[in-house]
């Protein structure tokens, strides 16, 4: 495929990201996708609480939002449509989120090579400020099928 840069179709990335089963299960929503930037939000829900004493959402919920927004940031930076996979994700929990208030996540793909994309993200509340920061890398043109064959050939 030799389309103009970027190759992405914002609506397609929005629809695809919003339709992922785990994103739907969390009740997370895609806010917007623009070239190199993905934004999501999630409403507080009782069954996502990690600490029953305080009503704080589990960190894994915030990790998921950031991972997903980061993937959207990569998709929207691609020159051609391809599979991507997270290589690693580092998350710092800056402060506990305010219970029962929406959480927003915003990720930016700030560097892309032929094989790797580098992304930073932040999760925040309004009002309230930043609650988490992330750095992640993605492999492009991945990976799943290769991994599947790795698995098939492993003892």
């Amino acid at each position: 495929m030799t389309g103009s840069f970027p190759a992405f179709d914002a609506k397609a990335v929005e629809q695809m990201s919003g339709a992922l089963p785990f994103v739907r299960a969390l009740g997370a929503e895609v806010v917007s996708v623009t070239p190199g930037v993905g934004k999501m939000k999630l409403a507080w829900r009782e069954d996502l609480v990690g600490d029953p004493r305080s009503g704080l959402l589990h960190g894994g919920v915030i990790t998921t939002l950031l991972d997903n927004a980061s993937g959207m940031a990569v998709f929207s930076s691609l020159r051609e449509v391809m599979q991507i996979a997270t290589l690693d994700l580092r998350i710092d929990y800056l402060r506990p989120p305010i219970p029962k208030q929406d959480i927003h996540a915003e990720a930016t793909c700030y560097r892309m090579t032929r094989t790797i994309a580098f992304v930073r993200g932040r999760a925040y509340q309004e009002p309230g400020g930043d609650i988490a920061a992330s750095l992640s890398t993605f492999i492009l043109g991945s990976s799943g099928p290769r991994d599947a064959s790795d698995r098939a050939s492993s003892p």
């Binding site: 089963p21 785990f22 994103v23 299960a25 589990h58 960190g59 990790t63 998921t64 991972d67």
Partner: peptide, 23 residues
């Protein structure tokens, strides 16, 4: 199936694995 993040493969969402590891 609700834990899937890549329906093509299908593969678990990275957030599911992050959540499991943190738990």
């Amino acid at each position: 199936e609700k834990l899937v993040g890549n329906p093509t493969l299908p593969a678990l969402h990275g957030g599911v694995l992050g959540s499991l590891l943190e738990c």
